[in-house]
Simulated scan of single mutants.
Amino acid sequence: MSDTTDLIRQKLATLEPAKIDIIDDSAKHAGHAGARGGGGHYSVIIVSSQFSGKTALARHRLVYDTLRELMHKHIHALSVKAYTPEESDLIH
């Protein structure tokens, strides 16, 4: 697991996730301007009761706000899939 993956996991712990998967897609983007600058490409699937009653946009904002200090230096691109525990039961 990369240092950035660990940092993402630590930051998102504040959302009390029931489940979290972090995928480092950086190798797929080698040579990309963001990759050369040190920022990686990541995909996050997160399940948290804190998303209950929130729109998809509000959920994404919550994740991005939580990771704000990592953006651009550690993270160049971030894909987010955010679910409530009830929704996650339906997708698996």
Rank of each mutant, 00 (worst) to 15 (best):
M1D: 11
T14C: 03
E16P: 01
S43D: 04
I45A: 08
D24C: 08
L57S: 02
I91M: 14
H41L: 03
S49L: 05
L67R: 01
T84H: 06
T14R: 08
I8H: 02
I20M: 08
E16K: 14
R59Q: 02
I45N: 03
G31E: 12
L15Y: 08
T55A: 06
A33C: 10
P85C: 02
P85M: 14
H72N: 10
R61E: 11
E16D: 14
S52W: 02
D21C: 05
F51P: 04
T66P: 03
R9E: 13
T4R: 10
H72V: 11
D21R: 10
I45V: 15
I75Y: 00
R61L: 02
T66H: 02
E86V: 11
A27W: 09
K73I: 13
I20P: 01
K11R: 15
R59D: 00
I75A: 08
K11W: 00
L15F: 09
V63N: 00
F51R: 10
G31R: 06
Q50D: 06
D89I: 13
R61Q: 11
G40D: 05
K54I: 01
P85T: 07
S88F: 15
L57A: 06
R9H: 08
H76D: 09
I8D: 02
A30Y: 07
V80S: 01
I91A: 12
F51K: 08
K19T: 08
L57K: 04
I23P: 01
